[in-house]
Design a protein around this nucleic acid. Sequence first.
DNA 1: TCTGGGGTCCTAGGACCC
DNA 2: TCTGGGGTCCTAGGACCC
Length: 419
Amino acid sequence: MDSKERVILHIDVNNAFLAFEAAFRLQHGATVDLRKIPSAVAGAQATRHGIILAKSLPAKQCGVKTGEAIWEAKQKCPNIAIIHPDYALYMCCHNALMELLKNFTDRMQIFSIDECFLDITNMELLGDPLKTANEIKEKIKKELGFTVSIGISSNKLLAKIGSDMKKPDAITTLYPSELPEKMWPLPVEDLYMVGNATAPKLHKMGIFTIGDLARCDIEWLKYKFKSWGILLWNYANGIEDSIVSGSGHSIIKGMGNSTTIHFDVEDKETAYLVLLSLVETVGMRLRYGGFCCRVVSVTIKKAEDLTSYSHQRKLAVPVDCTNAIFEECKKLFDRMWKGEPIRHLGVRVSDLTASDSIQLSFLEKNWEKQKKVDAVIDRIRMKYGPGSIVRSGFLRSGLAPLQGGLSEDVSFPVMTSIL
DNA sequence: TCTGGGGTCCTAGGACCC
DNA sequence: TCTGGGGTCCTAGGACCC
């Protein structure tokens, strides 16, 4: 039995955040299309969130790069228009896009806020895959007002690489038979999973194109990079067979919340307050999802050199109480902090279990009373908004009492090395 | 006026057990 | 006069993605 070749599409919104803004503004009477002038979506400099999140083509032509600071972008492109991000709008656009795509097939995997895989195997009734892709592309442009790039292949990896090859508003096929001609001449850093650390190492080994990597001895790569080497070799040869996993099925492994504080934190009390604001949100998300966590971790990013370090601890019993998590965070923080100025703090919980299946332990502090308090606070915030109940410690602190989004916005199955 | 925030997976080393 | 060796769990850090 030979299994039939699959047909996979990868759909990728071009310059997503900027395109969402542009489309929304045009629909609401704007006369200028942000995509046609030098522009970018970037956070506020005053609160030290000023990096480029998305940019227009004219800005890109000036040399503006995603991830760089606003002042750098302005040096290259003095008249660049800066727009502050509106994540609620982006989630609306995301939802609208996914709704539209659902009409083509339910074999669909949401990959990020602006990316999606469709499995259209056995849908010949729609005609040639190119025709289907074109139909999707035009429908999105007409109904949602932004353009996408689509890659077509027989697996997710190649579809994804394909969608990246021609932009914007384009369709590219990248079937295995096309690899020598289309993919192997590309620089090795264009390969999915070859990042800033791996690329220089490969270069040192004389590997500069994806083809160089594909023709490498796999044993040598294995020796050099362990399991990573095998993955790289497979990817360079277009080998990848994960399924398009239907939306919503992926199991969440952990949740985190972190923030760059708009001033350097130099005392413990302020750090505690920031940690609490982060835990408040994580705790609510945890309870909202019906989870308890067993591992709590705290990350500190130093103001001095922007490097970070973290500590974590596994608890004897899973918890979901804001205070329980906060207590642990404080202990972790005390254990690790050496007194240097802090730019950024993060809290993360993992090793999640369903909250209805946990056992009470007589050894750990009993959090039953706290659970009830959390439940009441959650209900009030759900009904009257996150700001309706605030801990008094924040009142004159100049800090936000809750940090980070309360995401009904599904956390995405996000990128793993096994696509 | 320096560089965000949300994820996943892998590895190495130490503790501890048999 | 010897320090083998396998296994699991835990933690810190690094790599990658959007």
